[in-house]
Simulated assay, not measured.
Amino acid sequence: MAAAALNLRQNYSLYAIPAAWILSLAPHFYAVQLGKFDNRNPRSYTKSLESDQSIDAETKGRIQRAEGAQQNGFENVGLFAAAVVAGNIAKLDNWTLNALTGGYLASRVLYNLLYINNTTDGAANARSAVFVSGIAMIFTLFIKAGNALKGQL
């Protein structure tokens, strides 16, 4: 239904950049509601968990994994944004831009869920595979852009 509401012939790729940033931040908001977050010293949040006896070990792990998911998202959102801009500069077709940026956003949603809920080696391996697939979409954008611009610069 939502896909039917979108005109997929339009280029939505630039909208994916702020969406990726929001998806990077989302795990932090989840983690904050699980524990005792001190906004005066936000970077000490996961460290302060170690001595907090009021939070059980499972919740502490979930908070730490959510914060890790947030950090991972912010670590690669710049690479994603650069790839999207490169794809637009190269005038890649809208279907390619939409498919790769939409696929990347979907990989980030799945990555966050797998990271936060990970308690097994299998889930950790799935998370890593999803991460690599998202990075592959970024690299695909760069390669397609490079191929399109070959000889033009």
Score class of each variant (00 low, 15 high):
Ala2Gln: 13
Ala3Glu: 12
Ala3Gln: 11
Leu6Ile: 10
Asn7Tyr: 08
Asn7Asp: 15
Arg9Glu: 15
Gln10Val: 12
Gln10Thr: 14
Tyr12Gly: 09
Leu14Lys: 14
Ala16Pro: 02
Ala19Trp: 01
Ala19Glu: 02
Ala20His: 09
Ala20Tyr: 11
Ile22His: 04
Leu23Ile: 05
Leu25Met: 12
Pro27Ile: 01
Pro27Cys: 03
His28Phe: 05
His28Cys: 10
Tyr30Val: 15
Val32Ser: 11
Val32Leu: 00
Leu34Asn: 13
Gly35Phe: 00
Lys36Val: 07
Lys36Gly: 14
Lys36Met: 00
Arg40Thr: 11
Ser44Arg: 06
Thr46Val: 15
Thr46Met: 08
Lys47Gln: 10
Lys47Cys: 04
Lys47Ile: 11
Glu50Asn: 14
Glu50Asp: 15
Glu50Pro: 06
Glu50Tyr: 11
Asp56Gln: 02
Thr59Cys: 01
Thr59Leu: 00
Lys60Asn: 04
Lys60Glu: 02
Gly61Glu: 00
Arg62Cys: 08
Gln64Lys: 13
Glu67Asp: 14
Asn72Trp: 05
Glu75His: 07
Gly78Leu: 13
Gly78Asn: 08
Leu79Tyr: 07
Leu79Gly: 01
Leu79Phe: 10
Phe80Arg: 06
Ala81Ile: 09
Ala82Leu: 14
Ala83Val: 00
Ala83Ile: 01
Val85Asn: 02
Ala86Met: 07
Ala86His: 01
Ala86Trp: 01
Ile89Trp: 09
Ala90Gln: 02
Ala90Glu: 05
Asp93Ser: 14
Asp93Val: 11
Leu97His: 12
Leu97Asn: 15
Asn98Ala: 08
Asn98Tyr: 04
Ala99Leu: 12
Gly103Tyr: 09
Tyr104Asp: 03
Tyr104Lys: 03
Tyr104Trp: 08
Leu105Met: 06
Ala106Asn: 01
Ala106Gly: 07
Ser107Cys: 14
Val109Tyr: 00
Leu110Trp: 10
Leu110Met: 13
Asn112Ile: 03
Asn112Gly: 12
Asn112Met: 01
Asn112Val: 07
Leu113Phe: 09
Leu113Tyr: 09
Tyr115Gln: 13
Tyr115Met: 10
Thr120Glu: 06
Ala123Arg: 12
Ala124Leu: 01
Ala124Gln: 08
Asn125Phe: 00
Ala126Arg: 04
Arg127Ile: 03
Arg127Ala: 10
Arg127Ser: 04
Ser128Trp: 02
Ser128Gly: 06
Ala129Met: 08
Phe131Ile: 02
Val132Asn: 11
Ile138Thr: 07
Phe139Ser: 12
Thr140Ala: 15
Leu141His: 06
Phe142Gly: 07
Phe142Leu: 12
Phe142Arg: 01
Ile143Ala: 13
Ile143Gly: 03
Lys144Thr: 00
Ala145Thr: 00
Gly146Phe: 04
Asn147Gln: 15
Leu149Asp: 02
Leu149Gln: 07
Leu149Thr: 04
Gln152Asp: 10
Gln152Pro: 09
Leu153Tyr: 13
Leu153Gln: 10
